[in-house]
């Protein structure tokens, strides 16, 4: 890998830029907004998936109950996993647009200006 040639700052100055940005209010807001969504959502979908797995494993009689003709609870729960996946995708995209992308772009421009002038 080559050093970037357009750099106008030294390595020490660059690390100061990174550390200063990390401590900035704007960055802390971005970080907490990102984590406030992604972390609980990750835990939620994993819990929901493992509830599904555990029901398929240990509650077979219950999930075998037919609901509409040949469609039983197991099939409905499996299809709900598809639905919930879609919901997470759409929600995260909307959240990113509203709460993350703007502030992220501001910070990117600012940091690159400080690094490269």
């Amino acid at each position: 890998m080559q050093d970037s040639t357009d750099s106008v700052v030294t390595t020490t100055q660059a690390s100061e830029v990174w550390e200063r940005t990390q401590q900035s209010t704007e960055f802390k807001t971005l970080k907490s907004r990102f984590r406030r969504f992604s972390f609980p959502m990750t835990i939620a979908f994993l819990v929901w998936y493992f509830v599904f797995v555990l029901l398929m494993t240990f509650a077979r009689d219950w999930v075998s109950t037919p609901v509409f003709g040949n469609i039983n609870i197991a099939m409905i729960l499996a299809l709900l996993q598809f639905v919930s996946t879609l919901i997470v995708v759409v929600t995260y995209d909307m959240y990113s647009h509203r709460k993350l992308d703007g502030i992220r772009e501001d910070l990117r421009v600012k940091v690159e200006k400080e690094l490269h002038g």
């Binding site: 940005t21 990390q22 960055f27 971005l30 992220r104 910070l107 990117r108 690094l115």
Partner: peptide, 11 residues
């Protein structure tokens, strides 16, 4: 600091 700022901002 560099990794965290890069990873979230794409700078």
């Amino acid at each position: 600091a560099e990794l965290e700022v890069r990873s979230l901002t794409g700078a």
